[in-house]
């Protein structure tokens, strides 16, 4: 008989690919505080931007592979739309990180920024990186969830993790709001282009955190289903 059993199974597990995709996002997020620090010290960040650009390309390739596998799948663990939405959010995170790094390459401040402002910026960058780390952990929990046949114990762990991500994200929101206020309060100190630029950087960082939170939220919805 023809050896057709292998064709029943996916060559690559889409869930594992999704986790690998999340790891690429995490790797790119690790560059945020490093690049921001260098940028604020007026050091070049082009090499880091290139690295993230490369990671983003790899993530795009992986995204295509996941979509290809999923177009043929039946009897999946959960609605495939949910997984594709998670993928979409993960992709949005790495896009935001990539845009952030590119933004750092296109502009330079003429004079140093106030220390309070730079501290807030660096804190936001670290919080965003943490949110993305939790996102990856959450996707890893999804693998465990499947392996455990949707064990209530793992569902509980997933819930706790999502709550952590949510509280972290609301902290990020508060910080970004405070940062925006601070930026605009310096309207008589900073150049208008500096203000516009800083506001753009803040938005990109919060966008990355928002999408990371969406991933964790969707994983929780799957775990509860």
């Amino acid at each position: 008989m023809t050896r057709f059993l292998g064709k029943l199974f996916p060559q690559e597990s889409p869930l594992k690919l999704l986790y690998e995709h999340a790891r690429l996002v995490e790797k790119s997020a690790e560059q945020i505080p490093v690049a921001l620090g260098k940028f604020l010290r007026h050091e070049p960040v082009e090499d880091l931007a290139q690295l993230v650009d490369k990671l983003e390309d790899e993530a795009d390739e992986m995204k295509v592979r996941i979509r290809e596998v999923y177009s043929k799948l039946k009897f999946v663990y959960f609605d495939r739309v949910d997984l594709l939405l998670i993928l979409h959010d993960q992709d949005a995170v790495i896009d935001a990180v990539d845009d952030f790094l590119k933004m750092l390459c296109i502009y330079k401040f003429d004079k140093p920024l106030p220390k309070e402002l730079t501290d807030m910026l660096l804190e936001l960058a670290e919080r965003v990186q943490d949110a993305i780390k939790f996102m990856v952990e959450s996707v890893h929990e999804l693998l465990k969830l499947v392996e455990s046949s949707f064990s209530p114990v793992v569902v509980g762990e997933e819930n706790a993790l999502t709550q952590k991500v949510e509280s972290d994200e609301s902290g990020t929101d508060r910080l970004s709001l405070a940062l925006a206020k601070k930026i605009f309060s310096l309207k008589n100190v900073l150049h208008p282009v500096d203000i516009m630029y800083l506001e753009k950087l803040t938005r990109l960082l919060t966008r990355a955190a928002d999408h990371a939170e969406n991933v964790a939220e969707k994983v929780r919805m799957i775990a509860k289903s």
């Binding site: 029943l8 199974f9 597990s13 043929k72 039946k74």
Partner: peptide, 26 residues
């Protein structure tokens, strides 16, 4: 056919939310 029983069993685990199967064309 042993192989057809294997396919039945694979689908059984799949419907029990145990695995991802591919290619219904098979």
């Amino acid at each position: 056919s042993t192989t057809h029983v294997v396919v039945g069993s694979v689908v059984g685990v799949g419907t029990a939310r145990g695995m991802e199967l591919v290619n219904v064309g098979v």
